[in-house]
Amino acid sequence: MNIFIDNKSGLPIYDQIYSQIKNQIISGALREDQLLPSIRNLAKDLGISVITTRRAYDELEREGFIYTVAGKGCFVAAKNTELLREENLRQIENHLQAIRDLAAACGLSRENIIEMFSVIEEETT
């Protein structure tokens, strides 16, 4: 498993871990029922706080991406197409928010953005 933390990006660290593990589960890089590193070991190896890794794992478990076996550790849950669809929707939402923020900085209106999107759609078909 590869995890890269960017301290300077301003994104909460737990969010970065959560996202990276989630993406690796979705892409299949992490296989079903694979054992994940313990919360403490992950924290120490990455040089970050235990509370943060715990928060990331809690979130992953809440969303159904991993499950915990008492005394053994955390494992990757089976892939779920419903979850995947939700995940993609979420990504689209994030991208839209980013577009909106950038648009605000440049002073573009909603019409401008929709126009740009239409141009892109035409180009790819």
């Binding site: 301290n7 300077k8 990006s9 301003g10 909106r100 923020d101 950038l102 605000a104 900085a105």
Partner: peptide, 13 residues
């Protein structure tokens, strides 16, 4: 506070 910073503003950690 991070959530109060206006969108697209020049922020750093």
């Amino acid at each position: 506070r991070r959530d109060a910073a206006p969108a697209g503003a020049n922020t750093s950690p």
